[in-house]
Write a protein that binds this DNA or RNA. Structure first.
Length: 158
DNA sequence: GCCAACGTTGGC
DNA sequence: GCCAACGTTGGC
């Protein structure tokens, strides 16, 4: 099982949206960057664990955990002309973009701000804390995963 | 709202 | 295939 971090704007989809329907699989679409796409398409697998990161908000940071409930499949939004994610150059025979499904796992009792993460020396290799990095889907090492978990208490730990 | 960083596009 | 122009991301 692998670990990941996915960025989302909480106005679009937040950890609370996931938590409100804990049994539901949510479509994770709109990834339009090739490096992120390649992670989704080639490496993200059913059951993988995902930090849900809230971006473009105050403050940005990690809000909780989801899991992959469906591995990569063609992102439906690329074929919808009305969608902001429409891609006229993609076609159903050779879809350019993929989506996955995610499901709620945990919400952090303590939201972990980017500012705090930047202060943890052992996390300095994460693309997340590196200047100018805009990757919206990134791998997280097991060590990083454990470090981050140790920084928060989980609200619904069993 | 600014702007640094970076990815993509398109003329040549 | 270079690279300038442009668009986007996302923290600040």
């Amino acid at each position: 099982m692998a670990y990941w971090l996915f960025k989302t704007e909480p106005d679009e989809l937040s950890i609370d949206d996931l938590a409100a329907e804990p049994e539901r699989s949510f479509l994770w679409d709109g990834v339009r960057n090739y490096q992120a796409r390649n992670f989704l398409r080639d490496l993200v697998q059913l059951g993988d664990q995902v930090f849900i990161y809230h971006s473009s908000c105050k403050p940005p940071g990690i809000a909780g955990i989801a899991s992959i409930s469906r591995a990569a499949y063609p992102d439906p939004s690329q074929f919808k002309p009305d969608s902001p994610y429409f891609d006229a150059k993609s076609n159903p025979q050779t879809p350019r973009w993929v989506a996955v499904d995610v499901k709620f796992e945990q919400k952090f009792a303590q939201f972990l701000t980017l500012d705090k993460l930047k202060k943890i020396g052992t996390l300095d290799q994460m693309p997340l804390v590196r200047k100018g990095n805009r990757l919206s889907v990134m791998p997280v090492t097991e060590q990083e995963w454990r470090t981050i978990l140790s920084l928060t208490a989980l609200s619904n730990q069993d």
